[in-house]
Nucleic acid binder design. Structure first.
Length: 434
RNA sequence: GUGGGCGUAGCUUAGCGGUUAAAGCGUCGCUCUGUGGCAGCGAAGACCGGGGGUUCGAAUCCCCUCGCCCACCCCA
């Protein structure tokens, strides 16, 4: 006999089982509500795009493109990439569908799975979901502030507190090359005091030295020239204006001059939102870790870079699995998981047939109910009802069939009432309301 | 890509060279044919992640591989 293969899910990918779905549903419902309120329209773009879209958009030298893309060669010879992030695809859709001709700004949102070939670890998967908001055609920092506000509100609606917003400006094509030079000039003579990674970074991506966590680098960092002192006038004005807006809407932000993001297309504003999380370590020690739930920024050159007109844009994305993990940790969903409150028990052939009809009636009345039609003994059916923790069980047997009644049993007290069959819906409604 | 920890029933784990691999929880059934939560009894369920080797003998030792977890890197 041939051996049956034992299949496993691909590395870094998960099954989202029924028990977890309520978390995802809650998150998506919240997003839809917020999007509607702020006037964002939903867009779905393909899960795969021409891989060049990301090479040009996300950036050739980013980790995402350099080593994390899943690429597919089609039979026709096209090279497609499974989307590693949303923004380039949405920009492509903006251009391709002529959204420039819509009243500006154009506000779009989406959510769904993304793919990155990475080594999985806490809060990091190869297939994961993000919630994404983008605004096109508005250069005012008011929009930057609004995007931040939207994500903040989104997390607040999900009951998160102690959120930390970090903002920074990383300049634009005008001032960034200049600042980079200033920074490299500062770092180079001091490279012996830096960690090995940072010595490499000086050449490859000097800005990243700024967010190194290595102790020895901290000291060098502390004296480093700050980007904020080297912004060009337009970036400086924009950033000042953003901070004013943030003050105005009372968002608790931190200015983090070391916040640098890994994607090439960002200009001016970058931001991240963190939540504090206490993780139990070995031997009862607790450490507070900060995990980034949201990240984003302005990308004024991307639309043009991807073949469109000169359209400024701003956006951000939230990591759904990370949010779910924290919601579980903090017990945010708890009582909200919807469970049917009524169970239908039947005994005998006739009642079983009648049950199907009754279920349909209850469905129309929007009373959620569960049953165990495959089982015959009342004992087992009640045991099941008990396990499901329903409030009421309907009991329909031969006796009830004869006089067209049904028993309503209250599970916690055990008291039972016999009601007329044609009054079940009404009687149940009355009881469930309490 | 680099480093560390771990893979035994659906879940949590015991066994760490020697007969048919064990327990708790869960599942199903019976005690109890129309009344649940308790209890008792019973059943199903594992080629001990996979492959190779050492040995008279491997879940146990060695090598390889796959997967999971964690950290670096990077990011949501």
């Amino acid at each position: 006999m041939a051996k049956r293969p034992k299949f496993q899910r691909p590395t870094g990918m998960k099954d989202i089982l029924p028990e977890e779905q309520p978390y995802f549903e809650k998150i998506y419902r919240t997003v839809d509500d917020i999007a509607r309120f702020y006037g964002f329209g939903k867009i779905d773009t393909p899960m795969v795009e021409d891989s060049e879209l990301y090479e040009r958009g996300t950036g050739q030298s980013t980790d995402i493109v350099e080593k994390q893309m899943y690429t597919i060669k089609t039979k026709g010879g096209d090279v497609l990439a499974m989307r590693p992030e949303f923004t380039p695809g949405i920009v492509r859709a903006f251009n391709e569908n002529g959204m420039l001709n819509l009243p500006q700004p154009v506000k779009l949102y989406t959510y769904g799975p993304l793919f990155r070939y990475e080594h999985p670890q806490a809060g990091r998967f190869r297939q994961f979901n993000q919630v994404d908001f983008e605004v096109f055609g508005e250069e005012s920092a008011a929009i930057d502030a609004q995007i931040i506000q939207i994500f903040y509100a989104f997390l607040r609606d999900l009951k998160f507190s102690h959120l930390i917003i970090e903002v920074n400006s990383i300049g634009d094509a005008q001032c960034r090359p200049y600042y980079k030079k200033v920074l490299v000039n500062y770092l180079r003579p001091r490279q012996n005091s830096l960690c090995a990674d940072c010595r490499r970074r000086i050449r490859e991506n000097p800005l990243r030295v700024l967010d190194c966590k290595e102790e020895k680098c901290q000291r060098v960092k502390a004296q480093a020239p700050q980007f904020l002192d080297h912004l060009c006038d337009s970036c400086k004005t924009h950033f000042k204006s953003l901070l004013e807006f943030l003050d105005e809407i009372d968002l608790p932000y931190h200015l983090d001059p070391y916040l640098v993001r890994g994607l090439d297309y960002y200009t001016k504003t970058v931001f991240e939102i963190f939540s504090e999380s206490t993780v139990e370590q070995k031997e009862g020690e607790e450490t507070v870790t900060r995990s980034a739930l949201v990240g984003g920024g302005r990308y004024d050159n991307l639309v043009r870079l991807l073949g469109g007109k000169d359209v400024p844009a701003m956006g951000g994305a939230a990591g759904v699995e990370r949010i779910v993990a924290l919601m579980k940790e903090k017990g945010f969903l708890g009582a909200e998981i919807p469970v049917p409150k009524v169970f239908l028990a039947q005994l005998g052939d006739l009642p079983k047939k009648k049950s199907l009809k009754l279920l349909e009636e209850l469905r129309r009345a929007k009373i959620s109910i569960t049953e165990s039609l495959g089982r015959d003994s009342l004992r087992t059916q009640l045991a099941r009802a008990d396990k499901l923790e329903v409030e009421y069980t309907l009991i329909l047997g031969q006796r009830e069939m004869l006089d067209e009644t049904i028993v309503i049993r209250k599970m916690d007290t055990g008291e039972q009432a016999i009601v007329k069959m044609d009054k079940v819906v009404e009687e149940l409604r009355k009881r469930l309301k309490k």
